[in-house]
């Protein structure tokens, strides 16, 4: 019996999310009194694979096939489900990011397992197996009982701390069979060097209160000083002031950074649905009755365009950039 955790790699490397996921899986394994196996697909060097042992993964299976260079949901599902069966996994854990959303549902069906999607805490109990997850886009939470013998969970991003737990590791390299990908990637466009919104610990976000796309320079500057990603509200992306990849909110990106700056954003329910997982929210708005101040811990009532340059100055002083 074991807990299996699928660890995605980005060009052969893991990131913070990977270690959060393994830390979570370790704790679930402790609750079950079972071992933990991590599975990686595609080419990842041993040195990188062994990093997972710092968070409790005592066995790492690296399954390789050239087709894994691109995500094909069916091939990924087959590879992970086969490992889950071989390892007699009772709980299979993935991230609730794009990758997890793509393959966890298929893996669940393949393993005849119930799926707890976007869980944000350790299971409340093991028998019955009860998980805690967001519902109604963050307006409520639910305790969900998973009744199947095998369970699949996806962990909400940035909802679990990294816990160091170094263990000796066995790395098993597996050359696996895979059919030709039926979904073929014919073109990839990637922006490099930008901090990903979903990875960022600090996010600086602008709304209609910024008044014009020409006013974004101090916001971008503030983000630069803080090592933050930039984001925006829906009207801003709909108007084309900023790209839609920056839109945070119910229908845009759902994020959970440690610190979120809502600058000139009134805080409609749909916007809050995308950012309510933030640990701290700073709101700057001219309207003292704007709903964003109900969600924020720190507020400044004032014109974003006048306050921003002062913030840039104040943060530059302490950050020394």
């Amino acid at each position: 019996m074991s807990v299996l955790v699928f660890v995605e790699n980005w060009d052969g490397r893991f990131k913070k999310l990977s270690f959060e996921l393994v830390s979570y899986a370790s704790k679930v394994a402790e609750m079950l009194g079972s071992g933990i196996t991590a599975v990686s697909l595609g080419t990842v060097e041993d040195a990188e694979l062994s990093k997972l042992a710092a968070y409790g993964a005592s066995k790492v299976i690296s399954a390789e096939n050239d087709h894994f260079a691109f995500l094909d949901n069916q091939n990924y599902t087959s590879a992970i489900a086969d490992v889950a069966i071989k390892e007699n996994a009772k709980v299979v854990i993935l991230s609730n990011n794009n990758m997890g959303k793509a393959i966890a549902p298929r893996i669940a069906v393949r393993l005849k397992a119930g799926l707890g999607a976007g869980v944000s805490r350790l299971p409340l109990s093991i028998d019955p197996f009860v998980v805690y997850k967001k519902v109604f886009s963050g307006n409520a939470f639910a305790n969900l009982s998973i009744k199947s013998e095998v369970k699949v969970l996806t962990l909400a991003q940035n909802s679990f701390e990294i816990i160091e737990k170094p263990v000796p590791v066995v790395i098993e390299k597996l050359r696996v069979e895979a059919a030709e990908n039926k979904t073929v990637v014919k073109d990839t466009q990637k922006q490099s060097g930008k901090i990903l919104l979903t990875d960022a610990e600090i996010v600086v976000s602008g709304g209609r209160g910024m008044k014009s796309p020409d006013n974004w320079a101090p916001l971008v500057e503030l983000a630069g000083i803080l090592g933050a990603a930039t984001a925006c509200s829906r009207p801003v992306s709909d108007e084309g002031w900023r790209g839609h990849e920056e839109h945070t909110g119910q229908t845009g990106k759902i994020i959970a950074p440690n610190l979120y700056f809502a600058i000139g954003i009134s805080g409609a329910t749909q916007h809050l649905a995308g950012v309510s997982g933030s640990k701290y929210i700073v709101a700057i708005n001219t309207d003292k009755d704007a709903p964003i101040f109900e969600a924020a811990q720190y507020g400044i009532v004032g014109d974003a365009l006048k306050v921003l340059p002062k913030l840039v100055e104040a943060f530059r002083e302490v950050k020394g950039k």
Binding site: L115, A140, N143, S145, K147, Q297
Partner: peptide
């Protein structure tokens, strides 16, 4: 395969 047992409201900030 799952059953929703009960809801909770988010803790007021």
């Amino acid at each position: 395969m799952t059953e929703l047992l009960n809801y909770e409201k988010p803790k007021p900030r």
